[in-house]
Amino acid sequence: MMKDTYILGIETSCDETAVAIVKNGREIISNVVASQIESHKRFGGVVPEIASRHHVEQITLVLEEAIAESKLDWDDIDAISVTEGPGLVGALLIGVNAAKALAFAKSKPLVGVHHIAGHIYANRLEEEFQFPLLALIVSGGHTELVLMKEHGSYEVIGETRDDAAGEAYDKVARMLNLPYPGGPHIDRLAAEGEVTIDFPRAWLEDDSFDFSFSGLKSAVINKIHNAKQKGIELKQEDIAASFQASVIDVLATKTVKAAKQHNVKQVIVAGGVAANRGLRAELEAKFSETDIPLLIPPLKLCTDNAAMIAAAGTINFEQGKRSGMDLNANPSLILR
């Protein structure tokens, strides 16, 4: 019988201090997330220096809780995995240095993990992967289509050329005076509004799976400004619905096209924006017309957590990938 593999994961790339333990890459044993969102709300966004300060205050507490919750001994843990990038450098550094200290103190292998690989592997905590698969990653920092032919292999076939989808959400939310983080508020308003404005959709070249959201963002801002100048009252709900319709149309259409072109067996949606109800509904509708299964993780696995890092770390560990004690935080780490 194969021995079970237990991997501890640490994630501190943005404003969540998180530690988790995952069994065999698929089963969550413990999963602790300390969110800083309440602290950053007053600033209207994540302040990197404040995020780093909170991480150093939280890290050992979160580690302790995750170990206690797991009821495991250190002997059971096979390796320490940690997000090495991308993300906020000062924030990443806390996780990386904690992971190194832990690996050294307990003589465990150290395994660096790409944050986006983590988001993709969050899905494996729900359902086993079938290759080739296509992953759509949408978050505050990312909009990417990634093709995976096997475990641990990532081919970025499309990415944003300017803003990430989540960034566009945050900026539009600010224009509408919605509190931070704006994404969920737009999603909620959009559900109450109607698509009355025909905002542009950036399809780019015919054969491209890349994205662009800066034009859309400017179009929304101009529309609001012009309406104000002319004294026209635009319904917030309708702006939200029209903006969201444009984002979702492009995301869903390109994802379906890429999935068909690459004959994938599964499509995975990952990242914070995967929690968006409008996006989920549109993707579900479009993929129901195909025979390609669509996987979207439950809400708490969409947002940043460490279970996803441990899940992705398990694959790296099994494939013999190791990091040294000189592991550094890399804010612009490339997925490959």
Partner: peptide, 19 residues
Amino acid sequence: SYTGVRIGLTTAKTLAWSL
């Protein structure tokens, strides 16, 4: 240096806690 201080503290705290 804020970053330097945090690197030392994170390492020291994690070593102490885990040992």
